[in-house]
């Protein structure tokens, strides 16, 4: 089996804080992956808010916030295992985030460094 990182992106900071119901739906989705024994790492949430996010650019330029050019930011990631990238994509498609607030999920195969 291969490992894939699912990288979550949102378009609006206002969408970042989910309601309890949205949170439950996301947990159901995540636990559904774990139930298939396909969750490698439940990952983490990456805080996009002021004081928690900066972007470092060349020539010692540091800006506030989690995004640079386009107003889109990474909100978190998880790592799953699947036989093929298509299978990983199917799992990502079922994420409730698309019905909740939109955004996108990038699916990337993990190449282990060691």
């Amino acid at each position: 089996m291969k490992e894939f990182a699912l990288i979550f992106r949102l378009k609006d900071i206002a969408d970042f804080k989910p309601t309890p119901e949205q949170m439950q739906e996301r947990m159901n989705w995540l636990a559904g992956i774990a139930s298939q024994n396909k969750l490698v790492d439940k990952g983490n949430t990456l805080l996009p808010i002021a004081g928690s996010a900066k972007t470092v650019k060349p020539n010692n330029v540091v800006t506030d916030g989690a995004y640079t050019e386009i107003k889109e930011f990474i909100s978190g990631y998880i790592v799953i295992k699947a036989d093929t990238i298509d299978e990983a994509v199917e799992i990502a498609k079922a994420n409730p985030i698309f019905d909740q607030v939109g955004g996108n999920i990038e699916v990337r195969e993990v190449l282990k460094r060691d």
Binding site: N28, A31, A34, S35, L39
Partner: peptide
Amino acid sequence: WQHILQLYNQLILIEYSPITALNRTFAF
């Protein structure tokens, strides 16, 4: 059952086992 499902969700995230997976699906 909503509460039970949430607890099973957390349980399966701590440790996978086939029985937990099946029980969670029953709660689902």
